[in-house]
């Protein structure tokens, strides 16, 4: 006997993500889910952002890693409130884990919450955490073929930070190719070319972030 169901899978995660999203909307806290390969510069970008505009925006960070709280310590050192989630082997964060972390950082009183997802260009993209926008980081040394190889992650991005732009002269990396590929996946993607270590290009990202946080806080809930 065959039974047709057509039931959505992972719906528990989605339900939980919807509750997180409502929490962020009600508290006017802008939540960004930051996704990249390990080592692209997520922690460095978040730390630098906190250092440079932490006086204008109250920023909190939910750090996801398979092991250790090294990253939470780093962003705390930059001045952010932070909580670490150790996924103990899991390759992505779930909406439920984020829910648990929000009270630990007093997320309701913040302007912006960054969720640094587990370094991985495949799995995190399938899990909505309730964020208002997704920020994908691609660093120059990873190569320009990544959007073509991991279209799912790039197609769901709202912002692309092309990081380590300070290394562009040393590495065979075609910016034109990356931009053409991601635009075909997502025409309205915001793209910033940055270096989190030299600070090059970071102002454009800060302007976007501040404008977005302001718009979001101004919305009626």
């Amino acid at each position: 006997m065959k039974v047709a169901l057509n039931k959505k899978i992972l719906d528990k995660n989605t339900e939980c993500a919807i509750r997180n999203k409502a929490f962020f909307r009600d508290n006017k806290t802008l939540c960004l889910n930051v996704i990249s390969s390990p080592g692209s510069g997520k922690t460095t970008i978040i730390s630098k952002t906190v250092t440079d505009i932490g006086d204008k925006l109250k920023i909190g960070v939910v750090e996801g890693d398979i092991k250790t709280d090294i990253d939470a310590q780093k962003v705390r050192a930059a001045g952010a409130v932070a909580v670490q989630i150790e996924t103990r082997g899991a390759c992505h964060l779930t909406a439920e884990q984020v829910t648990g972390a929000l009270s630990a950082i007093g997320a309701g009183d913040l302007d912006v919450v960054f969720i640094e997802n587990v370094g991985n260009l495949v799995c995190p993209s399938a899990f909505d955490l309730g964020e208002q926008a997704r920020v994908v980081v691609l660093s120059v040394p990873e190569g320009d073929d990544k959007p073509a190889k991991y279209p799912g992650t790039f197609a769901k991005a709202d912002v692309l930070l092309i990081n380590k732009i300070d290394l562009i002269d040393y590495i065979d990396f075609s910016l034109d190719r990356v931009i053409a590929d991601v635009r075909s996946l997502k025409p309205k993607l915001e793209i910033f070319q940055v270096s989190a270590t030299t600070g090059e290009g970071m102002q454009g990202w800060y302007d976007w972030l501040q404008a977005r946080a302001r718009d979001f806080a101004g919305q009626k809930s």
Partner: peptide
């Protein structure tokens, strides 16, 4: 072109 929405993850059918 515009990309159409990606198909969702579905449990389509169970055989008992």
């Amino acid at each position: 072109f515009d990309i159409n929405p990606d198909a969702p993850l579905l449990l389509e059918e169970i055989e008992f």
